[in-house]
């Protein structure tokens, strides 16, 4: 596998940084080399922010931010239109958006003619599984359907390891359920 670069878009406090790290850590557990890092600006809850994950079979030495991502994940749909979330995506680029819209509709809204557009209503899933609007974990599940970077089991294992002690068994299970549901419910067009 050549290096895969993922760019995450969210708002401060929505868990884009956590999602980018979980993906990296799950991949690291399978023997890949990884980098996961947020783009730190002034840190403010609600402000648009980006985070990145790099996954590769070889050592990663590049330390600049990602300019030509293979995959873009938009955790907050209100960012679409206010910032250029498709920036730098190539012909084979994939963009995954948290929205109740179908991919064709989102493609028009994004004015994106290349690659693939995938959509999933991750906010709804998180409300129904966790009882809180925390769409970052379902977005990870949907991402794995778009690109099998790690298996659902490997990701779940990582989530369990990171969350169990911190938020308890019940909420951890709810997060994993959200991941699995999003994996099933994501639409790719």
């Amino acid at each position: 596998m050549a290096m895969i670069e993922v760019r995450w878009h969210g708002r401060g406090g929505q868990g884009a940084k956590t999602a980018s790290q979980f993906l990296g850590e799950a991949a690291l557990n399978t023997g890949k080399y990884i980098q996961a890092f947020p783009e730190y600006g002034p840190e403010r809850a609600g402000a648009p922010m980006r985070s990145y994950t790099r996954i590769s079979d070889k050592t990663i030495t590049v330390h600049s931010s990602v300019t030509n991502p293979d995959i873009v994940v938009v955790i907050d749909p209100t960012l679409v239109g206010s910032i250029d979330v498709t920036e730098g995506l190539g012909d084979k680029g994939v963009i995954l958006v948290n929205t109740d819209k179908i991919p064709q509709e989102m493609r028009k809204e994004l004015n994106f003619t290349k690659g693939k557009v995938a959509t999933v209503d991750a906010t709804k899933i998180s409300l129904e599984t966790l009882g809180m609007p925390m769409p970052n974990m379902p977005m990870l599940g949907a991402l794995l359907k778009v690109n099998n970077l790690v298996s659902i089991e490997e990701l779940s294992e990582r989530v369990r390891a990171k969350f169990s002690k911190k938020i308890g068994e019940e909420k951890t299970n709810a997060n994993i359920e959200g991941i699995k549901r999003a994996y099933k419910e994501v639409n790719i067009g």
Partner: peptide, 12 residues
Amino acid sequence: QDGFITSHAVEG
């Protein structure tokens, strides 16, 4: 080490 670039990036 480089602030944020390596201090805050997760690597193996």
